[in-house]
Amino acid sequence: MGLFSKLKEGLSKTRDNIVSGIDSIFSGFSSIDDDFYDELEETLIMGDIGVRATDEIIEELKEKVKENKIKQPMECKQLLIDTIKEKMDLGENAYDFENQKSIVMLIGVNGVGKTTSVGKLAGHLRAMDKKVIMAAADTFRAAAIEQLTEWSHRTGADIIAQSEGSDPAAVIFDSIAAAKARHADVLLCDTAGRLHNKKNLMAELAKIDRVIEREYSDAYRENLIVLDATTGQNALSQLKEFKEVTDITGIILTKMDGTAKGGIAVAIQAEYGIPVKYIGVGEQVEDLQKFNSEDFVNALFDVHLSDGE
């Protein structure tokens, strides 16, 4: 029990000392020394950036500090922000799928918010006056189809569904046929949550991917992996396995309205170069936002612990 109490003490101490925002770290030190870098390291790791990417970022920062002969911690604040922002660059074509005939597939492990994200994305596209069809290819989880149907009512997007337990690749096949017949702008595909170490489920996803390639080859493809912002280093393992099956073009980082920083996205960018395109900040249709690296980096350093004291 000794450890518990010590830890609690530690946590509450941190709570007392908090100056919100990125400035807290930089104003708390008078010189750039090992303690300063240790504090930075701690903040980055606490944001789920992971040991490896954190080391990388700090090494880069040290170099830049040396190059520019910087002496004051406050002066290297912008350097650090830029270092991370550079890493989180979206590229110019991030949202190209919005303006052409496209098929967007959402994949990920269980419970990250795929169905909700499909619904929100549909709402977002409907607001742009696009013709949207949603494919209910999560045929496994109880009531997943009902959940997506509700989103179809809310957003006015069409839904193509079969019964629970049917072949998800067949649902996708039907949906593509419908998208062609109805001249849909965007076809959004919800898929079942699957843990990336389950061979059969990954094979099922590969089949869906093949059906899309074969049946809808003229559509622009966007494959988004949905990640829960609270996820830790395991997300790297998820990325690695899902990437084997389909070409992932972006990340939707959900549940960013909690206290989790979603720093794992930085680790993923560093390791695989896949950008975050959307963040989820709530349960309403409008709570899916396009990614803004400035806000993201600021939030990373916004050290607030539970209950906002």
């Binding site: 996820t231 830790g232 989790a260 539970s306 209950d307």
Partner: peptide, 19 residues
Amino acid sequence: VDSMTGQDAVNVAASFNEK
């Protein structure tokens, strides 16, 4: 709790426990 949760697990657990 999702076993894949990262650093934020302490905040989540502590808040639920406190509240």
